[in-house]
Protein backbone atom coordinates (compact mmCIF):
# COMPACT_ATOMS: atom_id res chain seq x y z
CA UNK A 1 0.00 0.00 0.00
CA UNK A 2 3.02 2.28 -0.15
CA UNK A 3 2.98 5.11 -2.62
CA UNK A 4 4.84 4.37 -5.85
CA UNK A 5 6.72 7.14 -7.60
CA UNK A 6 5.23 7.80 -11.07
CA UNK A 7 8.43 6.77 -12.88
CA UNK A 8 8.57 3.32 -11.29
CA UNK A 9 5.08 2.23 -12.23
CA UNK A 10 5.08 -1.45 -13.22
CA UNK A 11 4.49 -2.30 -16.85
CA UNK A 12 0.96 -2.55 -18.08
CA UNK A 13 0.61 -6.34 -18.19
CA UNK A 14 1.28 -7.09 -14.49
CA UNK A 15 -0.83 -4.10 -13.59
CA UNK A 16 -3.62 -5.48 -15.74
CA UNK A 17 -3.24 -8.77 -13.91
CA UNK A 18 -3.52 -7.06 -10.54
CA UNK A 19 -6.57 -5.16 -11.66
CA UNK A 20 -8.16 -8.35 -12.90
CA UNK A 21 -7.38 -10.10 -9.62
CA UNK A 22 -8.86 -7.16 -7.72
CA UNK A 23 -11.99 -7.36 -9.81
CA UNK A 24 -12.12 -11.09 -9.17
CA UNK A 25 -11.74 -10.47 -5.46
CA UNK A 26 -14.60 -8.00 -5.57
CA UNK A 27 -16.75 -10.46 -7.47
CA UNK A 28 -15.82 -13.56 -5.48
CA UNK A 29 -18.37 -13.08 -2.67
CA UNK A 30 -21.16 -12.63 -5.21
CA UNK A 31 -19.83 -15.54 -7.26
CA UNK A 32 -19.72 -17.94 -4.33
CA UNK A 33 -23.23 -16.90 -3.31
CA UNK A 34 -24.43 -17.55 -6.86
CA UNK A 35 -22.74 -20.97 -6.85
CA UNK A 36 -24.36 -21.98 -3.58
CA UNK A 37 -27.74 -20.76 -4.84
CA UNK A 38 -27.38 -22.73 -8.07
CA UNK A 39 -26.49 -25.85 -6.09
CA UNK A 40 -29.55 -25.39 -3.89
CA UNK A 41 -31.79 -24.76 -6.88
CA UNK A 42 -30.49 -27.94 -8.49
CA UNK A 43 -30.93 -30.05 -5.35
CA UNK A 44 -34.28 -28.66 -4.32
CA UNK A 45 -36.08 -26.45 -6.85
CA UNK A 46 -38.86 -25.89 -4.35
CA UNK A 47 -36.49 -23.82 -2.22
CA UNK A 48 -36.16 -21.13 -4.89
CA UNK A 49 -39.42 -19.38 -4.16
CA UNK A 50 -40.73 -16.54 -2.04
CA UNK A 51 -41.58 -18.97 0.75
CA UNK A 52 -38.26 -20.79 0.36
CA UNK A 53 -36.10 -17.70 0.52
CA UNK A 54 -38.01 -16.53 3.55
CA UNK A 55 -37.28 -19.78 5.36
CA UNK A 56 -33.71 -20.23 4.19
CA UNK A 57 -32.52 -16.70 4.72
CA UNK A 58 -34.38 -15.29 7.70
CA UNK A 59 -31.75 -16.61 10.12
CA UNK A 60 -29.11 -15.05 7.89
CA UNK A 61 -30.23 -11.54 8.88
CA UNK A 62 -28.81 -11.73 12.42
CA UNK A 63 -25.67 -13.35 11.02
CA UNK A 64 -25.31 -10.51 8.49
CA UNK A 65 -25.74 -7.93 11.25
CA UNK A 66 -23.18 -9.69 13.46
CA UNK A 67 -20.81 -9.83 10.48
CA UNK A 68 -21.19 -6.08 9.94
CA UNK A 69 -20.50 -5.59 13.65
CA UNK A 70 -17.33 -7.67 13.37
CA UNK A 71 -16.38 -5.78 10.21
CA UNK A 72 -16.18 -2.47 12.08
CA UNK A 73 -13.58 -3.74 14.56
CA UNK A 74 -11.68 -5.49 11.80
CA UNK A 75 -11.61 -2.18 9.89
CA UNK A 76 -9.65 -0.83 12.86
CA UNK A 77 -7.19 -3.76 12.84
CA UNK A 78 -8.85 -5.35 15.86
CA UNK A 79 -10.80 -8.55 16.39
CA UNK A 80 -13.90 -9.06 18.54
CA UNK A 81 -14.13 -12.51 20.07
CA UNK A 82 -17.07 -11.53 22.25
CA UNK A 83 -19.63 -10.69 19.56
CA UNK A 84 -21.28 -14.13 19.80
CA UNK A 85 -21.91 -14.05 23.53
CA UNK A 86 -22.81 -10.36 23.23
CA UNK A 87 -25.55 -11.26 20.75
CA UNK A 88 -26.72 -13.91 23.25
CA UNK A 89 -26.75 -11.31 26.03
CA UNK A 90 -28.75 -8.88 23.89
CA UNK A 91 -31.12 -11.73 23.06
CA UNK A 92 -31.74 -12.42 26.75
CA UNK A 93 -32.35 -8.71 27.46
CA UNK A 94 -34.69 -8.50 24.47
CA UNK A 95 -36.73 -11.52 25.53
CA UNK A 96 -37.10 -10.34 29.13
CA UNK A 97 -36.66 -6.67 30.03
CA UNK A 98 -37.35 -5.13 26.62
CA UNK A 99 -40.77 -6.79 26.74
CA UNK A 100 -41.66 -6.42 30.42
CA UNK A 101 -40.00 -3.07 31.16
CA UNK A 102 -39.18 -1.40 27.82
CA UNK A 103 -37.46 1.61 29.38
CA UNK A 104 -35.12 -0.54 31.43
CA UNK A 105 -34.50 -2.75 28.40
CA UNK A 106 -33.61 0.21 26.18
CA UNK A 107 -31.37 1.64 28.90
CA UNK A 108 -29.52 -1.67 29.28
CA UNK A 109 -29.05 -2.05 25.53
CA UNK A 110 -27.79 1.54 25.16
CA UNK A 111 -25.55 0.93 28.17
CA UNK A 112 -24.08 -2.15 26.52
CA UNK A 113 -23.26 -0.08 23.41
CA UNK A 114 -21.59 2.36 25.81
CA UNK A 115 -19.65 -0.55 27.30
CA UNK A 116 -18.40 -1.41 23.83
CA UNK A 117 -17.30 2.21 23.30
CA UNK A 118 -15.42 2.16 26.62
CA UNK A 119 -13.80 -1.10 25.59
CA UNK A 120 -12.52 0.61 22.44
CA UNK A 121 -11.11 3.44 24.56
CA UNK A 122 -9.47 0.99 26.97
CA UNK A 123 -7.88 -0.99 24.14
CA UNK A 124 -6.52 2.19 22.57
CA UNK A 125 -5.32 3.96 25.73
CA UNK A 126 -3.63 0.97 27.37
CA UNK A 127 -2.52 -0.43 24.00
CA UNK A 128 -4.00 -3.82 24.89
CA UNK A 129 -4.47 -6.64 22.38
CA UNK A 130 -8.16 -6.64 21.48
CA UNK A 131 -8.21 -10.44 21.26
CA UNK A 132 -7.41 -10.75 24.96
CA UNK A 133 -9.81 -8.03 26.07
CA UNK A 134 -12.73 -9.28 24.00
CA UNK A 135 -12.09 -12.91 24.94
CA UNK A 136 -12.39 -11.83 28.56
CA UNK A 137 -15.53 -9.83 27.75
CA UNK A 138 -17.07 -12.87 26.08
CA UNK A 139 -17.23 -14.56 29.49
CA UNK A 140 -18.66 -11.40 31.04
CA UNK A 141 -21.48 -11.22 28.47
CA UNK A 142 -22.16 -14.95 28.79
CA UNK A 143 -22.28 -14.67 32.59
CA UNK A 144 -24.65 -11.70 32.44
CA UNK A 145 -26.86 -13.55 29.96
CA UNK A 146 -27.15 -16.53 32.30
CA UNK A 147 -27.91 -14.18 35.21
CA UNK A 148 -30.76 -12.57 33.28
CA UNK A 149 -32.12 -15.82 31.89
CA UNK A 150 -30.87 -18.82 33.92
CA UNK A 151 -33.16 -21.14 31.98
CA UNK A 152 -34.11 -20.85 28.31
CA UNK A 153 -37.33 -18.92 27.85
CA UNK A 154 -38.66 -15.40 27.71
CA UNK A 155 -40.59 -13.97 24.82
CA UNK A 156 -39.79 -11.40 22.16
CA UNK A 157 -41.75 -8.11 22.27
CA UNK A 158 -44.74 -8.20 19.92
CA UNK A 159 -43.53 -5.27 17.79
CA UNK A 160 -40.28 -7.10 17.16
CA UNK A 161 -42.10 -10.30 16.19
CA UNK A 162 -44.24 -8.23 13.82
CA UNK A 163 -41.19 -6.65 12.16
CA UNK A 164 -39.36 -9.94 11.70
CA UNK A 165 -42.37 -11.76 10.25
CA UNK A 166 -43.15 -8.86 7.88
CA UNK A 167 -44.07 -10.19 4.45
CA UNK A 168 -43.53 -7.54 1.77
CA UNK A 169 -44.94 -8.18 -1.70
CA UNK A 170 -42.65 -9.84 -4.29
CA UNK A 171 -39.31 -9.48 -2.51
CA UNK A 172 -38.83 -11.78 0.53
CA UNK A 173 -38.12 -9.82 3.71
CA UNK A 174 -34.65 -11.31 4.37
CA UNK A 175 -33.44 -10.20 0.94
CA UNK A 176 -34.86 -6.73 1.46
CA UNK A 177 -33.24 -6.51 4.89
CA UNK A 178 -29.88 -7.63 3.50
CA UNK A 179 -30.06 -4.98 0.75
CA UNK A 180 -30.92 -2.25 3.25
CA UNK A 181 -28.14 -3.27 5.67
CA UNK A 182 -25.57 -3.43 2.89
CA UNK A 183 -26.65 -0.10 1.36
CA UNK A 184 -26.73 1.82 4.65
CA UNK A 185 -23.36 0.58 5.88
CA UNK A 186 -21.76 0.93 2.46
CA UNK A 187 -22.85 4.54 2.27
CA UNK A 188 -21.72 5.30 5.83
CA UNK A 189 -18.33 3.64 5.68
CA UNK A 190 -17.34 3.93 2.04
CA UNK A 191 -18.98 7.15 0.86
CA UNK A 192 -18.73 9.60 3.76
CA UNK A 193 -15.59 11.47 4.73
CA UNK A 194 -15.63 10.22 8.31
CA UNK A 195 -15.98 6.68 6.95
CA UNK A 196 -12.68 7.21 5.15
CA UNK A 197 -11.10 8.32 8.45
CA UNK A 198 -12.47 5.24 10.20
CA UNK A 199 -11.01 2.91 7.60
CA UNK A 200 -7.82 4.93 7.57
CA UNK A 201 -7.34 4.28 11.28
CA UNK A 202 -6.80 0.66 10.31
CA UNK A 203 -4.95 1.40 7.08
CA UNK A 204 -2.40 3.93 8.21
CA UNK A 205 -2.86 5.07 11.79
CA UNK A 206 0.38 7.05 11.89
CA UNK A 207 -0.62 9.21 8.93
CA UNK A 208 -4.00 9.92 10.45
CA UNK A 209 -2.45 10.96 13.74
CA UNK A 210 -0.06 13.32 11.98
CA UNK A 211 -2.97 14.79 10.10
CA UNK A 212 -4.51 15.67 13.45
CA UNK A 213 -7.28 13.09 13.76
CA UNK A 214 -7.96 11.52 17.13
CA UNK A 215 -7.28 7.80 16.98
CA UNK A 216 -8.97 7.43 20.35
CA UNK A 217 -12.15 8.81 18.85
CA UNK A 218 -12.03 6.56 15.78
CA UNK A 219 -11.52 3.48 17.94
CA UNK A 220 -14.41 4.45 20.22
CA UNK A 221 -16.67 5.05 17.21
CA UNK A 222 -15.69 1.72 15.61
CA UNK A 223 -16.35 -0.23 18.80
CA UNK A 224 -19.61 1.63 19.47
CA UNK A 225 -20.76 0.75 15.94
CA UNK A 226 -19.85 -2.88 16.64
CA UNK A 227 -21.96 -2.69 19.80
CA UNK A 228 -24.85 -1.09 17.89
CA UNK A 229 -24.89 -3.77 15.20
CA UNK A 230 -24.43 -6.47 17.84
CA UNK A 231 -27.59 -5.18 19.52
CA UNK A 232 -29.45 -5.16 16.19
CA UNK A 233 -28.26 -8.72 15.53
CA UNK A 234 -29.44 -9.98 18.92
CA UNK A 235 -32.81 -8.31 18.53
CA UNK A 236 -33.29 -9.66 15.01
CA UNK A 237 -32.37 -13.15 16.19
CA UNK A 238 -34.93 -13.10 19.02
CA UNK A 239 -37.53 -11.66 16.65
CA UNK A 240 -37.13 -14.85 14.60
CA UNK A 241 -36.69 -17.49 17.31
CA UNK A 242 -39.41 -15.78 19.49
CA UNK A 243 -37.66 -16.90 22.65
CA UNK A 244 -34.14 -16.74 24.04
CA UNK A 245 -31.39 -18.97 25.40
CA UNK A 246 -28.20 -17.71 27.06
CA UNK A 247 -26.12 -19.76 24.59
CA UNK A 248 -28.05 -18.72 21.52
CA UNK A 249 -25.36 -16.58 19.87
CA UNK A 250 -22.18 -18.47 20.72
CA UNK A 251 -21.60 -19.68 17.17
CA UNK A 252 -21.73 -16.14 15.78
CA UNK A 253 -18.19 -15.17 16.79
CA UNK A 254 -16.48 -17.39 14.25
CA UNK A 255 -19.27 -17.09 11.66
CA UNK A 256 -18.94 -13.31 11.70
CA UNK A 257 -15.16 -13.40 11.27
CA UNK A 258 -15.48 -15.92 8.43
CA UNK A 259 -18.19 -13.75 6.85
CA UNK A 260 -15.98 -10.65 6.83
CA UNK A 261 -13.04 -12.53 5.31
CA UNK A 262 -15.24 -14.33 2.78
CA UNK A 263 -16.72 -10.96 1.84
CA UNK A 264 -13.33 -9.67 0.74
CA UNK A 265 -12.09 -8.11 3.97
CA UNK A 266 -8.56 -8.36 5.35
CA UNK A 267 -7.55 -8.81 8.98
CA UNK A 268 -5.27 -5.78 8.79
CA UNK A 269 -5.07 -2.62 6.77
CA UNK A 270 -8.60 -1.29 7.07
CA UNK A 271 -9.62 -3.16 3.92
CA UNK A 272 -13.23 -4.18 4.41
CA UNK A 273 -16.30 -4.30 2.24
CA UNK A 274 -19.77 -3.92 3.79
CA UNK A 275 -21.55 -5.30 0.71
CA UNK A 276 -19.11 -8.20 0.58
CA UNK A 277 -19.58 -8.87 4.30
CA UNK A 278 -23.36 -9.12 3.93
CA UNK A 279 -23.00 -11.41 0.92
CA UNK A 280 -20.39 -13.43 2.81
CA UNK A 281 -22.78 -13.88 5.73
CA UNK A 282 -25.59 -15.00 3.40
CA UNK A 283 -23.28 -17.46 1.67
CA UNK A 284 -22.13 -18.95 4.95
CA UNK A 285 -25.69 -19.23 6.23
CA UNK A 286 -26.81 -20.95 3.02
CA UNK A 287 -23.78 -23.20 2.61
CA UNK A 288 -23.76 -24.37 6.20
CA UNK A 289 -27.37 -25.34 6.54
CA UNK A 290 -29.79 -25.55 3.57
CA UNK A 291 -27.19 -26.86 1.15
CA UNK A 292 -26.10 -29.50 3.61
CA UNK A 293 -29.65 -30.56 4.42
CA UNK A 294 -30.56 -30.84 0.75
CA UNK A 295 -27.46 -32.89 -0.09
CA UNK A 296 -28.63 -35.89 1.97
CA UNK A 297 -25.25 -36.63 3.47
CA UNK A 298 -25.20 -39.56 5.95
CA UNK A 299 -25.51 -38.22 9.52
CA UNK A 300 -22.02 -39.37 10.49
CA UNK A 301 -20.50 -37.11 7.84
CA UNK A 302 -22.73 -34.06 8.15
CA UNK A 303 -20.61 -32.32 10.75
CA UNK A 304 -17.44 -32.86 8.73
CA UNK A 305 -19.16 -31.82 5.48
CA UNK A 306 -20.21 -28.56 7.09
CA UNK A 307 -16.58 -27.85 7.92
CA UNK A 308 -15.43 -28.91 4.46
CA UNK A 309 -17.80 -26.47 2.73
CA UNK A 310 -16.50 -23.60 4.86
CA UNK A 311 -12.89 -24.54 4.12
CA UNK A 312 -13.52 -24.80 0.37
CA UNK A 313 -15.26 -21.44 0.21
CA UNK A 314 -12.57 -19.70 2.28
CA UNK A 315 -9.75 -21.44 0.43
CA UNK A 316 -11.01 -20.06 -2.89
CA UNK A 317 -10.91 -16.63 -1.34
CA UNK A 318 -7.32 -17.07 -0.11
CA UNK A 319 -6.13 -18.39 -3.48
CA UNK A 320 -7.45 -15.34 -5.28
CA UNK A 321 -5.98 -12.83 -2.84
CA UNK A 322 -2.61 -14.56 -3.16
CA UNK A 323 -2.66 -14.05 -6.93
CA UNK A 324 -3.29 -10.42 -6.32
CA UNK A 325 0.00 -9.99 -4.43
Amino acid sequence: MTAIAPGTLPKSSPRGNAARARLLRGLLPALSLALVLIAIAWLNPRAISYFGFNLMLNLAIPIALATIAQMFVIAGNELDLSIGTFVGFVGCVTATWLRDAPLLGIAVLLGSIGAYALLGALIHLRNLPSIVVTLGMSFVWQGLAILILPKPGGKAPDWLLAIMSFKPPYVPFPIMAALIIAAVVHFGLMRTSYGVILRGSGGNAAALRRAGWSLLKTKIVLFALTGLFGVLSGMALIGITTSADANIGNGYTLLSIAGVILGGGEFVGGRVSPIGAVIGALTLALAASPLLTFMHIPPDWQVAANGAILIIVLAARVLISRRER
Binding site: N44, R46, A47, F51, G52, L55, M56, N58, L59, P62, I63, L237, I240, T241, D245, N247, I248, G249, N250, G251, Y252, A285, A288, S289, P290, T293, F294, H296, P299, Q302, V303, N306, G307
Partner: peptide
Amino acid sequence: ADVFTTADKEVPTQAAQVQNLILQG
Protein backbone atom coordinates in the same frame (compact mmCIF):
# COMPACT_ATOMS: atom_id res chain seq x y z
CA ALA B 1 -36.78 -41.56 7.44
CA ASP B 2 -33.70 -39.37 7.11
CA VAL B 3 -31.45 -38.21 9.93
CA PHE B 4 -29.99 -34.70 10.11
CA THR B 5 -27.42 -33.75 12.73
CA THR B 6 -26.23 -30.18 13.19
CA ALA B 7 -22.53 -29.40 13.43
CA ASP B 8 -22.76 -27.67 16.77
CA LYS B 9 -25.10 -27.52 19.73
CA GLU B 10 -26.29 -24.08 18.66
CA VAL B 11 -29.95 -23.10 18.61
CA PRO B 12 -29.87 -20.95 15.44
CA THR B 13 -28.26 -23.78 13.47
CA GLN B 14 -31.01 -26.17 14.45
CA ALA B 15 -33.70 -23.56 13.81
CA ALA B 16 -32.29 -23.12 10.31
CA GLN B 17 -32.22 -26.90 9.92
CA VAL B 18 -35.89 -27.22 10.84
CA GLN B 19 -36.76 -24.52 8.31
CA ASN B 20 -34.83 -26.39 5.64
CA LEU B 21 -36.67 -29.59 6.48
CA ILE B 22 -39.95 -27.71 5.98
CA LEU B 23 -38.70 -26.70 2.54
CA GLN B 24 -37.69 -30.28 1.79
CA GLY B 25 -41.33 -31.26 2.05
